[in-house]
Design a protein around this nucleic acid. Structure first.
Lengths: 109, 109
DNA sequence: ATCGTTAATCGTCGATCCACGATTAAGGTA
DNA sequence: TACCTTAATCGTGGATCGACGATTAACGAT
Protein backbone atom coordinates (compact mmCIF):
# COMPACT_ATOMS: atom_id res chain seq x y z
CA UNK A 1 0.00 0.00 0.00
CA UNK A 2 3.02 2.19 -0.15
CA UNK A 3 2.14 2.69 -3.75
CA UNK A 4 -1.03 4.43 -2.77
CA UNK A 5 0.84 6.95 -0.69
CA UNK A 6 3.29 7.55 -3.47
CA UNK A 7 0.54 8.72 -5.76
CA UNK A 8 -0.63 11.22 -3.15
CA UNK A 9 -1.67 14.46 -4.79
CA UNK A 10 -0.22 17.64 -3.44
CA UNK A 11 -3.55 19.06 -2.42
CA UNK A 12 -3.25 21.87 0.04
CA UNK A 13 -3.86 20.32 3.46
CA UNK A 14 -4.77 23.57 5.19
CA UNK A 15 -8.34 23.83 6.45
CA UNK A 16 -10.75 25.59 4.17
CA UNK A 17 -11.74 29.06 5.13
CA UNK A 18 -12.92 31.91 3.07
CA UNK A 19 -11.00 35.14 3.42
CA UNK A 20 -12.92 38.36 3.67
CA UNK A 21 -15.54 37.63 1.10
CA UNK A 22 -17.24 40.92 1.84
CA UNK A 23 -15.80 42.55 -1.22
CA UNK A 24 -16.45 39.55 -3.42
CA UNK A 25 -19.69 41.17 -4.37
CA UNK A 26 -18.11 44.54 -4.99
CA UNK A 27 -15.40 43.11 -7.19
CA UNK A 28 -17.93 41.01 -9.07
CA UNK A 29 -20.05 44.05 -9.73
CA UNK A 30 -17.17 46.16 -10.99
CA UNK A 31 -15.78 43.30 -13.05
CA UNK A 32 -19.19 42.87 -14.56
CA UNK A 33 -19.00 46.39 -15.92
CA UNK A 34 -15.86 45.43 -17.80
CA UNK A 35 -17.14 42.03 -18.83
CA UNK A 36 -18.25 43.07 -22.29
CA UNK A 37 -16.05 44.17 -25.20
CA UNK A 38 -18.22 47.16 -25.99
CA UNK A 39 -17.98 48.40 -22.43
CA UNK A 40 -14.24 47.91 -22.40
CA UNK A 41 -13.96 50.03 -25.50
CA UNK A 42 -16.18 52.73 -24.04
CA UNK A 43 -14.13 52.79 -20.88
CA UNK A 44 -10.87 53.01 -22.78
CA UNK A 45 -12.28 55.82 -24.85
CA UNK A 46 -13.29 57.81 -21.80
CA UNK A 47 -10.01 57.14 -20.05
CA UNK A 48 -8.05 58.39 -23.02
CA UNK A 49 -10.23 61.38 -23.69
CA UNK A 50 -11.21 62.33 -20.18
CA UNK A 51 -14.69 63.06 -21.40
CA UNK A 52 -16.77 62.37 -24.45
CA UNK A 53 -20.17 63.12 -25.84
CA UNK A 54 -22.49 60.18 -26.17
CA UNK A 55 -22.83 60.65 -29.90
CA UNK A 56 -19.13 60.21 -30.43
CA UNK A 57 -19.19 56.96 -28.57
CA UNK A 58 -22.06 55.75 -30.68
CA UNK A 59 -20.19 56.74 -33.82
CA UNK A 60 -17.17 54.78 -32.71
CA UNK A 61 -18.91 51.53 -31.97
CA UNK A 62 -20.54 49.19 -34.48
CA UNK A 63 -23.73 49.22 -32.45
CA UNK A 64 -27.08 50.94 -32.56
CA UNK A 65 -27.56 54.07 -30.52
CA UNK A 66 -29.98 52.37 -28.19
CA UNK A 67 -27.58 49.53 -27.57
CA UNK A 68 -24.77 51.89 -26.71
CA UNK A 69 -27.11 53.76 -24.43
CA UNK A 70 -27.82 50.52 -22.63
CA UNK A 71 -24.12 49.86 -22.10
CA UNK A 72 -23.66 53.40 -20.87
CA UNK A 73 -26.45 52.81 -18.41
CA UNK A 74 -24.78 49.67 -17.11
CA UNK A 75 -21.49 51.50 -16.74
CA UNK A 76 -23.25 54.36 -14.98
CA UNK A 77 -25.06 52.01 -12.62
CA UNK A 78 -21.81 50.32 -11.74
CA UNK A 79 -20.42 53.74 -10.90
CA UNK A 80 -17.59 53.49 -13.39
CA UNK A 81 -18.70 56.53 -15.35
CA UNK A 82 -20.67 59.70 -14.80
CA UNK A 83 -22.93 61.47 -17.25
CA UNK A 84 -23.44 65.18 -17.30
CA UNK A 85 -26.13 66.82 -19.36
CA UNK A 86 -24.84 69.53 -21.63
CA UNK A 87 -27.73 71.02 -23.50
CA UNK A 88 -29.14 68.43 -25.81
CA UNK A 89 -25.99 66.35 -25.52
CA UNK A 90 -24.60 64.30 -22.68
CA UNK A 91 -20.98 64.35 -21.64
CA UNK A 92 -19.67 61.15 -20.12
CA UNK A 93 -16.54 60.91 -18.08
CA UNK A 94 -14.72 58.21 -16.19
CA UNK A 95 -15.10 57.92 -12.45
CA UNK A 96 -11.48 57.73 -11.49
CA UNK A 97 -12.25 56.64 -7.98
CA UNK A 98 -14.26 53.63 -9.04
CA UNK A 99 -11.70 52.74 -11.62
CA UNK A 100 -9.07 52.67 -8.94
CA UNK A 101 -11.28 50.59 -6.73
CA UNK A 102 -11.51 48.04 -9.50
CA UNK A 103 -7.78 48.13 -10.07
CA UNK A 104 -7.08 47.73 -6.38
CA UNK A 105 -9.49 44.86 -5.95
CA UNK A 106 -8.08 43.01 -8.93
CA UNK A 107 -4.52 43.72 -7.90
CA UNK A 108 -5.33 42.40 -4.43
CA UNK A 109 -6.30 39.06 -5.85
CA UNK B 1 -23.81 85.14 -27.55
CA UNK B 2 -20.93 85.29 -25.15
CA UNK B 3 -23.18 83.63 -22.66
CA UNK B 4 -23.41 80.60 -24.83
CA UNK B 5 -19.67 80.25 -24.97
CA UNK B 6 -19.40 80.70 -21.27
CA UNK B 7 -21.53 77.68 -20.68
CA UNK B 8 -19.25 75.61 -22.92
CA UNK B 9 -18.77 72.17 -21.51
CA UNK B 10 -15.26 70.91 -21.15
CA UNK B 11 -15.76 68.06 -23.53
CA UNK B 12 -12.53 66.68 -24.83
CA UNK B 13 -12.03 68.20 -28.28
CA UNK B 14 -9.62 65.57 -29.48
CA UNK B 15 -10.79 63.45 -32.38
CA UNK B 16 -12.30 60.14 -31.46
CA UNK B 17 -10.20 57.10 -32.06
CA UNK B 18 -10.19 53.77 -30.39
CA UNK B 19 -6.89 52.61 -29.00
CA UNK B 20 -5.85 49.05 -29.58
CA UNK B 21 -9.18 47.44 -29.02
CA UNK B 22 -7.74 44.05 -29.84
CA UNK B 23 -7.51 43.06 -26.24
CA UNK B 24 -10.91 44.45 -25.41
CA UNK B 25 -12.27 41.01 -26.00
CA UNK B 26 -9.60 39.33 -23.93
CA UNK B 27 -10.12 41.63 -20.99
CA UNK B 28 -13.86 41.24 -21.26
CA UNK B 29 -13.52 37.48 -21.20
CA UNK B 30 -11.25 37.43 -18.18
CA UNK B 31 -13.33 40.02 -16.36
CA UNK B 32 -16.36 37.91 -17.04
CA UNK B 33 -14.79 35.08 -15.10
CA UNK B 34 -14.59 37.34 -12.07
CA UNK B 35 -17.99 38.90 -12.62
CA UNK B 36 -19.81 36.68 -10.16
CA UNK B 37 -19.43 36.61 -6.37
CA UNK B 38 -19.23 32.84 -6.25
CA UNK B 39 -16.41 32.81 -8.78
CA UNK B 40 -14.57 35.52 -6.90
CA UNK B 41 -14.77 33.43 -3.76
CA UNK B 42 -13.57 30.34 -5.55
CA UNK B 43 -10.65 32.23 -7.04
CA UNK B 44 -9.68 33.69 -3.68
CA UNK B 45 -9.88 30.27 -2.15
CA UNK B 46 -7.56 28.77 -4.74
CA UNK B 47 -5.17 31.69 -4.57
CA UNK B 48 -4.86 31.35 -0.82
CA UNK B 49 -4.62 27.58 -0.80
CA UNK B 50 -2.71 26.98 -3.99
CA UNK B 51 -4.88 23.98 -4.68
CA UNK B 52 -8.16 22.61 -3.47
CA UNK B 53 -10.38 19.64 -3.99
CA UNK B 54 -13.71 20.33 -5.58
CA UNK B 55 -15.63 18.99 -2.62
CA UNK B 56 -14.06 21.51 -0.30
CA UNK B 57 -15.11 24.32 -2.56
CA UNK B 58 -18.64 23.00 -2.64
CA UNK B 59 -18.66 22.75 1.14
CA UNK B 60 -17.54 26.33 1.44
CA UNK B 61 -20.16 27.87 -0.81
CA UNK B 62 -23.89 28.07 -0.16
CA UNK B 63 -24.60 26.50 -3.50
CA UNK B 64 -25.50 23.10 -4.85
CA UNK B 65 -22.73 20.86 -6.10
CA UNK B 66 -23.89 21.13 -9.67
CA UNK B 67 -23.94 24.90 -9.49
CA UNK B 68 -20.42 25.05 -8.16
CA UNK B 69 -19.36 22.66 -10.87
CA UNK B 70 -20.80 25.05 -13.42
CA UNK B 71 -18.83 27.95 -12.01
CA UNK B 72 -15.70 25.83 -12.00
CA UNK B 73 -16.33 25.04 -15.63
CA UNK B 74 -16.62 28.73 -16.48
CA UNK B 75 -13.41 29.48 -14.62
CA UNK B 76 -11.69 26.61 -16.36
CA UNK B 77 -12.90 27.72 -19.78
CA UNK B 78 -11.64 31.22 -19.13
CA UNK B 79 -8.28 29.70 -18.32
CA UNK B 80 -8.17 31.12 -14.83
CA UNK B 81 -7.96 27.72 -13.18
CA UNK B 82 -6.83 24.23 -13.98
CA UNK B 83 -8.32 20.98 -12.81
CA UNK B 84 -6.35 17.83 -12.23
CA UNK B 85 -8.00 14.50 -11.65
CA UNK B 86 -6.85 12.77 -8.50
CA UNK B 87 -8.60 9.47 -8.21
CA UNK B 88 -12.27 10.07 -7.70
CA UNK B 89 -11.58 13.65 -6.68
CA UNK B 90 -10.47 16.66 -8.68
CA UNK B 91 -7.81 19.08 -7.57
CA UNK B 92 -8.22 22.62 -8.79
CA UNK B 93 -5.49 25.20 -8.84
CA UNK B 94 -5.10 28.75 -10.00
CA UNK B 95 -3.49 29.52 -13.33
CA UNK B 96 -1.05 32.15 -12.21
CA UNK B 97 -0.28 33.22 -15.72
CA UNK B 98 -3.86 34.02 -16.59
CA UNK B 99 -4.34 35.73 -13.30
CA UNK B 100 -1.46 38.00 -14.10
CA UNK B 101 -2.84 38.65 -17.54
CA UNK B 102 -6.04 39.83 -15.94
CA UNK B 103 -4.16 41.98 -13.46
CA UNK B 104 -2.05 43.49 -16.20
CA UNK B 105 -4.99 44.23 -18.45
CA UNK B 106 -6.93 45.87 -15.66
CA UNK B 107 -3.92 47.79 -14.45
CA UNK B 108 -3.33 49.02 -17.98
CA UNK B 109 -6.74 50.61 -18.05
C1' DA C 1 -17.87 -7.80 -8.88
C1' DT C 2 -20.34 -4.69 -6.06
C1' DC C 3 -20.83 -0.76 -3.50
C1' DG C 4 -19.85 4.09 -2.08
C1' DT C 5 -17.84 8.45 -3.08
C1' DT C 6 -16.80 12.24 -6.01
C1' DA C 7 -17.69 15.38 -9.57
C1' DA C 8 -19.32 16.31 -14.37
C1' DT C 9 -23.25 16.48 -17.16
C1' DC C 10 -28.22 16.75 -18.36
C1' DG C 11 -32.64 18.96 -18.38
C1' DT C 12 -35.44 22.47 -16.67
C1' DC C 13 -36.96 26.88 -15.12
C1' DG C 14 -37.01 31.80 -14.43
C1' DA C 15 -34.25 35.89 -14.91
C1' DT C 16 -31.21 38.66 -17.28
C1' DC C 17 -28.31 40.05 -21.28
C1' DC C 18 -27.78 42.01 -25.67
C1' DA C 19 -29.20 43.66 -29.83
C1' DC C 20 -32.42 46.26 -32.48
C1' DG C 21 -36.10 49.66 -34.23
C1' DA C 22 -39.45 52.85 -32.69
C1' DT C 23 -40.87 56.17 -29.65
C1' DT C 24 -40.40 59.76 -26.31
C1' DA C 25 -38.28 63.62 -23.77
C1' DA C 26 -35.33 67.54 -23.48
C1' DG C 27 -32.84 71.15 -25.28
C1' DG C 28 -31.37 74.39 -28.88
C1' DT C 29 -32.47 77.04 -33.15
C1' DA C 30 -34.90 79.38 -36.82
C1' DT D 1 -44.09 78.33 -32.06
C1' DA D 2 -42.35 74.87 -34.97
C1' DC D 3 -38.42 72.25 -36.13
C1' DC D 4 -34.13 69.67 -35.51
C1' DT D 5 -30.79 67.24 -32.90
C1' DT D 6 -29.52 64.32 -29.17
C1' DA D 7 -30.00 60.61 -26.11
C1' DA D 8 -32.95 57.86 -22.95
C1' DT D 9 -36.58 54.68 -22.78
C1' DC D 10 -39.91 51.18 -24.44
C1' DG D 11 -40.99 46.83 -26.38
C1' DT D 12 -39.47 42.78 -28.64
C1' DG D 13 -36.91 38.53 -29.59
C1' DG D 14 -33.24 35.34 -29.18
C1' DA D 15 -29.44 33.82 -26.43
C1' DT D 16 -27.22 33.03 -22.23
C1' DC D 17 -26.91 32.91 -17.13
C1' DG D 18 -27.60 30.90 -12.70
C1' DA D 19 -29.76 27.85 -9.82
C1' DC D 20 -31.41 23.35 -8.84
C1' DG D 21 -32.34 18.12 -8.71
C1' DA D 22 -31.40 13.98 -11.05
C1' DT D 23 -28.48 11.22 -13.58
C1' DT D 24 -24.18 9.51 -15.21
C1' DA D 25 -19.18 8.44 -15.24
C1' DA D 26 -14.90 7.46 -12.97
C1' DC D 27 -12.42 5.73 -9.41
C1' DG D 28 -11.40 3.19 -4.74
C1' DA D 29 -12.48 0.08 -1.49
C1' DT D 30 -14.60 -4.00 0.29
Amino acid sequence: MAKKKAKQRDCDPRPVSLPDDDCAEELAQLAWAVAHPARVRILRLLINRETCVCGEIVAELPLAQSTVSQHLKILKESGMINGEIDGPKVCYCINTEKLHTLKDLVAAL
